[in-house]
Design a protein around this nucleic acid. Structure first.
Lengths: 122, 122
DNA sequence: TCAACTATTCAAGAAACCTTGAATTGACAT
DNA sequence: ATGTCAATTCAAGGTTTCTTGAATAGTTGA
């Protein structure tokens, strides 16, 4: 993932409504949810929703597919993952303390490998 | 980390100059770098730098300390880590595919634990 | 005290972003 | 064809964010 794509993705994440969208859609998996149902669930106007869905899709964080009159949106896990990776790898050079701090939960997976010996932070 | 702090941190990351700052300061560790030297290194005007440093500090991604006339800025690894964690845990509910996609590098650490059986993505 | 230096704050303008209601497109059913 | 429904696009406005030069605060050394 290159610089400008990562920036677009981070900008896309940096908004309350769009974070709500990610949170709502992630558990839906590849099936996703129709725009209308999303609008109803979150209680937001259609044009506003369209605006934010489009931002997320252009940033590579969501996918969409048409079914009849509906448009179903679902998260693109690799888009989010690559964005996180960009911050960790390209910006923080895999700095051990950063990885340690961000893997408190991921560490449930990573335990055993994460060799940040004596440098525990808050 | 709560919602609004995470949003502030993501907004702070979503800017080219501020990403440059993180990239520059991370390898410096706790020593950090003086504002003047940062300005010279990145070739940006002092007020502009101050503006972005302040944004990052308020978002909890940087710390600062005064030494004589200088102000040294350094990254707060836990700030960045908690921000990443927020996206992963609170927004994506630790969704396996997202974790898998973001741990291609972190996976060097996480291998063995990451039980994302048959669901490999791009 | 005075001059030099580092960094921040201020004010103004430019640019980008977000929300809203109205209009539009496209698909389906009758 | 016509009406209905789902979703997007458009245009206007308001707000926020960013950059710049000028001014300010605080620190050091002569």
């Amino acid at each position: 993932m290159d610089r400008s794509k990562a920036l677009a993705a981070l900008s896309a994440l940096a908004h309350e409504t769009r974070l709500d969208l990610i949170r709502l859609l992630t558990p839906q998996g590849d099936d996703g949810m129709a725009a209308g149902q999303i609008a109803e669930t979150l209680g937001i106007a259609a044009p506003r929703l369209s605006f934010h869905l489009s931002a997320l899709e252009q940033a590579g964080l969501l996918r969409s597919r048409k079914v009849a009159r509906n448009v179903f949106y679902s998260v693109d896990p690799s888009g989010i993952g690559q964005t996180i990776s960009y911050v960790l790898n390209d910006c923080c050079s895999d700095h051990p303390e950063v990885l340690a701090a961000c893997t408190h939960k991921v560490a449930g997976l990573a335990q055993g490998g994460l060799a940040v010996s004596g440098t525990e932070k808050t």
